[in-house]
Design a protein around this nucleic acid. Structure first.
Lengths: 339, 339
DNA sequence: TTGAAAGCGCTAACAG
DNA sequence: CTGTTAGCGCTTTCAA
């Protein structure tokens, strides 16, 4: 059994004393390179048993201080409040552990200051990599890391100074729009343009999706009204407000919509409910994002699910094998049709 | 500007040399206790400027090795795939940072082995606290931590060897059941018992909720069928399968349900869709959990939202001020009525 | 086969 | 007001 109340944690010196040997022998055994040091197998066994009994845990701070590589990998992520980022984090943790890395993840709530604050903190912990997910200012994080000789990498939103892995937003949005337009035409009996809502106009993903949205309309020879592109931000209330304002200004709102994230969809759904605008006929929707409940919410919704496993495979491929700093990898998203 | 390619990171010795002073002065200044050491303010300023210019970041491994307290706080969490755990993690990170602690969070996918593996890893990193959230075997984590003199604490699911903060499952479930029963009676014109579905029968929360469920029925003098309590597990497919089996066995399924989590609800909704069992009349639902889209899913759903901010306030109150090891704090959840 | 010893970067006495 | 010094626990040469 272990000490009742350990005032001080067990060290390799304690173990060495108990085993009647030296700290270096203990270290070698515990690190598994004792055949290299040709340590007696009975000694090795004794040390292992003792460590077990004492509940010994290596002091990583000391170990890492001495080593050259920390094997720590950091990720910053904007929010934990949707399935997309949730599965990014979960997959990241898994894949990191699989290759013997210790993942540390922190959430920066879309705040640029917090982003660099978090990155700085990670640098203090000697991370070997920083993955910036959906960062508002990824290049700033890259600069900060580069100054300490730490590599970084962008996920979800691209940067210009480090390799980036993102969804193929243009192609995904174009195909999603095409599907929704067809759906809509089938229902209405005639062609009709959609409303685009959600996201930040300034971010790369949103602007690519707008381009895809416009391309699909153009291919089907449908004219989009420029003021029907509402890149109002990500928060639910923003979408809600934008729709209210549009309805007020124009007296009506398009019957079909391209919603730029489940977060925005939350606001859109709330507004649809309250406004009573679609009491006679349900809107035709497309959402560039996925959520299991949304799939059940209505029949006329098409969703695009970003391919998180493929995205993270790319991320770790870069970590394992390297990549040009400027490379931009675009992963095709997956289409989900509601049941 | 900083060195093009730093082969070695800037240390306090580099800074000391540049400033023409000693490492201890640099350390004191950078740690903010230079008034204590009465260091000249011009020197202090110079050091600060230099550190800034060089992009200096303290080496935490070295710093922590020397210090007595690590200021690191760990949390293990089962999944990142729902709003409840997502907001727990986000709130935890915030509150930890607010008091100068460094949070490390890891997801253990409801796997008892991973739970203790993760706890062991955190101990190596010298965490001061481990918060076990929804752990399958919290007492094992507590034992492991105790052996290294590290304090721990349970969240969401209670343990017997460390303080626990959980929702008031009994009262919450009783009130939720009461509301759904009333709703149901109003709709049907007569009293009718509900089906309980989801969760593990062996976990504390589920069994308390079942008790509350039964109590509400008893108070309204409604008899529940024992085989209408389906604690089939948390995965969506489990709920789906359990409903299929019940329908097969009995030819019908109750018109009202108490669903034990949004995860289970996912399966329930899928089954409802596919089975066509409720084509004429919509089911009356209650869900012990909250999700913004579920609120929009149907009119007849009552939800219970666990009070995450209050739960984490309790957690940090214990961390700040201590608590009896055996204390069990139950936080009343909040009722959400769909719009 | 094994142990002694140096030193990772930092903090905190202690000695000026 | 400031510098010197002794470790924190561990890994890794190097010498035996």
């Amino acid at each position: 059994m272990n000490r009742d109340k350990q005032p001080k944690r067990t060290t390799i010196y304690d173990l060495a004393e108990l085993a009647g040997t030296s700290a270096s022998a203990v270290s070698a055994v515990l690190n598994g390179n004792w055949k290299k040091r040709r340590i007696g197998s009975q000694l090795a066994e004794k040390i292992t048993r003792l460590a077990e009994e004492q509940g010994y845990a290596v002091n990583m701070q000391a170990s890492l201080l001495r080593r050259e590589k920390s094997k720590i990998i950091g990720m910053i992520v904007p929010k934990y409040d949707n399935r997309y980022f949730g599965s990014i984090v979960e997959t990241f943790e898994n894949m990191a552990r699989q290759r013997g890395l210790f993942p540390i993840v922190t959430c920066t709530r879309r705040d640029p200051e917090l982003e660099i604050e978090a990155a700085r903190e990670m640098l203090s912990y000697q991370v070997e990599w920083v993955v910036s997910t959906g960062a508002t200012d990824p290049d700033r994080v890259t600069d900060l890391c580069a100054a300490s000789g730490v590599r970084s990498l962008n996920l979800d939103l691209p940067g210009s100074k480090a390799p980036s892995v993102i969804s193929d937003n243009f192609a995904g949005a174009r195909e999603l729009t095409r599907r929704v337009l067809l759906n809509h035409e089938r229902k209405l009996g005639h062609k009709s343009p959609l409303l685009f809502i959600g996201g930040r106009g300034s971010d790369h993903n949103t602007s690519e999706r707008v381009k895809g949205f416009l391309a699909a309309h153009a291919e089907m020879e449908i004219t989009v009204h420029q003021h029907h592109i509402l890149t109002c931000g990500y928060a639910p209330e923003k979408a809600d407000d934008a729709l209210s304002a549009l309805a007020q200004a124009e007296g009506s709102v398009p019957m079909g919509m391209f919603v730029n994230s489940t977060i925005s969809l939350e606001g859109v759904m709330g507004w649809i409910r309250r406004s009573g605008h679609y009491s006679t006929i349900a809107p035709t929707l497309g959402c560039f994002d996925w959520d299991p409940f949304v799939a059940l919410l209505c029949d006329d919704i098409q969703m695009v699910r970003q391919d998180v496993p493929a995205m993270l495979s790319s991320v770790f491929d870069i970590i394992d094998n390297g990549a040009k700093t400027t490379s931009l990898i675009e992963i095709p998203p997956v289409f989900v049709t509601s049941p």
